[in-house]
Design a protein around this nucleic acid. Structure first.
Lengths: 267, 267
DNA sequence: TAGTGGTCTAGACCACAGC
DNA sequence: CTGTGGTCTAGACCACTAA
């Protein structure tokens, strides 16, 4: 009477055996690669049942104890797999109640955005860039608001080329409060973005992606028609709460696209 | 019952009275919030050292054994934290050699893309939609290539409104091989996207995001000028390798933006 | 109150890559 | 070979919460 039967999955066989190391016991996945660790195998089995629709949203999963018994392993091993599934958002765990398949709330898409130089190189094209303008000045009110409380900023405009064609226009503000070395840095060989990554390797990032029409200046810079659609990527970077840089990248819309893929649970 | 001896505290701790629960021993973080689990505390400590630049890329981290000693905990607890850091890409672990801070290769941005109805609701606007066209036919060669091997498809065009203003135009193909129920589904009350999510809750998704110019038809549908920039989101959905749907969403560029945030290690 | 997940232990063995 | 991380155990206690 412990488990009211709604859509509860019964334990998977193998109860009396005990079997010290059955390895792939009742995992249902017969032709496993035999190379994976046990908790990874359990994770894959559970995920497969969820993704295939065998366990639709709301289904209660077996208890850790029962899964552990069915695999002939300890509860810790099962817990490792289920904790990972919960972190990926596939399941929801509640004390006393049990574990349930969640309804997907949204698609969490993982977009990889690399350095522009690498981005161009990935297309198999030669990359170069030129500094259009460089200026040190006080931050305007609007800038200070977005960049944080930076008093002085380095403002840089930069054009990136792929195979000698304009590829991207970069407008960047760097907080000199946070990165004073930027004031004297040489951006001839290393682009500001690459320089910053090497200087402040880890950071938190916030993105905004929009489609905009090229104004007259942008059109001239990218050699496209005025009013042509462009992909605008706005990005603010902070590190440990300190604002580092705000950059706006403008790509000709016809050429550039952001691609991304998503697996329900990271594979 | 399987715990015949519950009052017999055999193993865990309190053997010789030697430091049963030292908790924050030498962890350097004296005034901890005392609310987090120990492995989470360790994870935060290590991540903070990496993100702050105290441990720049290439730095070798202490061995698990040493960290465990310094926190007065077992190696498993440290391992849990470091495994998570490795999964997040902040560190690299090599047997025998040790653990090292990685150089970030790229920014992995997590973009949450929700159902259009919810998306509009999040803006605090009323949402409604209308089916513009609905047709069942054989897939063209180009469609079959992108949708997989679907023989028959349901082609739907749909307009979404926010506060009675056109918000998004949706062109969708649904593979009737994979989702035959779609043929007779009623999309008056539930939009095709929402219906599919409830029908096939978990899936793999592939995205392409571009900026495009509105052609004459699109301009009329969204009540914008021909040639105006639009954000185009192309998305292919599969489940367990089976193609489900391909959809192209077109948003007026001036209004819509995709926002995303990124934390180096998921926090 | 009872039962679930959350966490942690003090070992253990293994695989693998430096030395 | 040696030492590191990778994995696993057979328990244990705790926190929370549904009943």
């Amino acid at each position: 009477m412990q488990h009211p039967e709604k859509s509860r999955i019964e334990k998977t066989g193998r109860k009396g055996g005990a079997a010290v190391r059955p390895r792939s016991a009742a995992g249902a996945n017969a032709g496993a690669s035999a190379k994976k660790s046990l908790h990874q195998q359990i994770l894959d089995d559970l995920r497969s049942r969820i993704l295939s629709g065998e366990w639709p949203p709301g289904t209660q999963l077996p208890f850790e104890q029962d899964i552990a018994r069915s695999y002939g392993c300890s509860r810790m091993t099962v817990n490792k797999a289920m904790t990972q599934l919960a972190g990926a958002g596939l399941i929801e765990r509640r004390r006393k109640a049990g574990t349930f398949v969640r309804r997907p709330q949204s698609h969490s898409v993982i977009v990889e955005i690399v350095d522009i130089g690498r981005e161009v190189a990935a297309l198999g094209l030669p990359h170069h860039f030129e500094i259009v303008s460089r200026e040190i000045r006080g931050a305007t009110a609007a800038e200070a608001e977005r960049l944080g409380a930076a008093a002085r900023v380095l403002s840089i405009q930069c054009r990136h080329f792929a195979a000698r064609q304009p590829f991207c226009f970069e407008e960047r503000l760097i907080s000199l409060d946070s990165v004073p070395e930027a004031e004297t840095a040489d951006f001839e060989a290393t682009s500001p973005g690459a320089w910053l990554v090497s200087r402040v390797p880890w950071s938190d990032v916030e993105y905004r992606i929009r489609a905009v029409a090229a104004d007259r200046e942008t059109a001239g810079r990218l050699l496209i028609a005025e009013g042509a659609p462009c992909l605008s990527i706005w990005r603010r970077t902070t590190s440990e709460g300190q604002p580092i840089t705000v950059v706006c990248l403008t790509y000709p819309g016809s050429d550039h696209e952001i691609s991304a893929s998503f697996s329900s649970a990271e594979g």
